[in-house]
Amino acid sequence: MNAAYLYSLVTVVVLGLIAYAGVEAAGLDVLFGVIIPYLAFIIFLVGFANKIIDWSKSAVPFKIPTTMGQQKSLAWIKQNKIDSPYTTGQVVIRMLLEILLFRSLFKNTRTGFGAGRRISYKWVIWLWLFALLFHYSFLVVVIRHLRFFTEPVPFFVSFLERIDGMLQILLPNIFLSGFALLAGALLLLVRRVFLPKLAYISRPADYFPLFLIIGIAVTGLMMRYLSKVDVIRIKELTMGLATLQPSIPEGGISGLFYVHLFFVSILVAYIPFSKIMHMGGIFLSPTRNLANNSRAKRHENPWNYPVKTHTYEEYEEDFRDKMKEAGIPVEKE
């Protein structure tokens, strides 16, 4: 019934093969190592800025926060400052908790039909947990990769590497984040495939980025732990990119690296046109980033325009006699 994942999976596999063959067989190192990464990055920057500016151009006519707790009203009633923020500061806290801790997802429940015709709503944290695992490990992986794009490597990167490699097991020393990322992505995928409701709403645009990220994680882990690539050559290439003096290092780099790099390029270029823009969208969500103080502070609607109303004069005109008869005061006798 749902071939959506197939499209996506096949696309990702084909993309991988293209990059591999392109480099190993056709010798297109420059295309895959320099041109495509730059192109992808430029598309990302322009596309991302475009989208955000496009959003910002749309008006916010009304203050419509979703209130999830007690409003500020009488002094002795305890306001829920996070879920029903009244001041900008409280809004900032709400947004931070949302962005950093996925607070709304943490509230998730599962509806169940139990014995005795009872409908139950059970608190479930799996989605929240998987999402947190996925996003944070991704962040750590991305920051760790700065070691390839900076020289000297800044302290926070080395520091993060130390934390990430804290276990000091295996060789090369295991970075937890890489495996966590793969696990997170796989868990999200498994959810999508095996939960009937989720499978039903999922489309290629949902599977594609997941498969792509899984591809990135798998090729990355492989390079580090299994097939060994020449990290020094890779850093030469990436430093060339980061200092705008691109070159393909002598001796060449394994095709596997180019598959990894190509996947990353595709992902980066894909971001502005896809649901991954939720990373920008969350900041602009009017149900979260506005204060619940609309009765105290007037919110301006930039396109507010006068409308036709039924004025009191017209009303009295319609009903004057009846009003008089009923003893209701009127303006004009």
């Binding site: 419509i64 823009m277 969500s285």
Partner: peptide, 20 residues
């Protein structure tokens, strides 16, 4: 006229939290 509409059209990731 409504940023809410535009942002809500773009950002859904179909995570399924709202489904039930």
């Amino acid at each position: 006229k409504y940023r809410s509409l535009k942002v809500f059209m773009d950002t859904c990731v179909r995570c399924g939290a709202c489904a039930d």
